[in-house]
Amino acid sequence: MTSYIIKRLVLLIPLLLGITLVSFVLLKSLPGDIALSLVGERASQETIDSIRKEIGADKDALHQYAGYLKMLARGDLGRSYYTGRDVLSDIARKFPNTMKLAFAAMAISVPLGIMAGFAAAYRKGGPVGKMIDALSLAGLSVPVFWSAIMIMVVFSLRLKMFPPSGTGNIRFLVLPACALSIPAAATLVRVTRTVVAEVLAMPFIRTATAKGLPPARIKMQHVLRNAIIPIITIIGLDFGSYLNGAVVTETIFGWDGIGRFTMEGIMKRDYPVIMGCIIAGTVVFVMVNLLVDVLYHYLDPRIRLHANDK
């Protein structure tokens, strides 16, 4: 187990090298002069030259990349072109907010999705099953940016139950978490329903029922244990992408997280911020995937993790 985890973490290094190289090449191939757009068109040549020197744009691309890697090896992500703030500490400050939002959204979508999915599988073909089916398909079809605005209008601007935007305590968290949890819950319902229906058709469920086990026990120990793997996979994927920042939700509700930070960086072409967010995002994503793989092993001991697999 330990060797497996170590091996996966070591594999992170070539992945990061590849990702930094690709994003570096892409960013450098952008049209326009970043130094010029930083100081404005009317700046004197000396100012432009000094800015160029300051951000390292006077050297050739290879030197710039090597310089960036050196900085990265020291655990430094550089400074934002616009605010001059340290990118790593900005990310470290915003990440807890993103994490709060991700956990809050999962706290709604996971129980809701699993319970509704179970209900749909147990009542397949009946009115309840059909209704859950239709609702989950509708949940997948409503875009988050629209449902977020509608939720904000109804619960914040009309009913004045929650503040419309900002970052803070749990009152600020409720609405964005609800908006974010809709598509996640819908996906989870559909996956849970399919897997549970498959498990329910297995002979061992009939055996368990025939030998007189209480239905609740069959549900928890026979059905859930056998259906858990695809469910965990979906939860892991959603969680990983939320931790990378829920761009739209964070923007609409003014939540000060990684998603909004990345979006602002991209819009302003703030290269150190974009690169920093990409690197941090990759690390987080790999960590979540690793965690999910380790969880697989504990939830289903038939799955063994070997250091020499993949």
């Binding site: 892409l26 990378n244 920042g245 761009v247 990759t282």
Partner: peptide, 14 residues
Amino acid sequence: SFPSLLLAVAISVV
């Protein structure tokens, strides 16, 4: 392995 929306956003900005 990358949030697809961010990738699409990045391309649309380039």
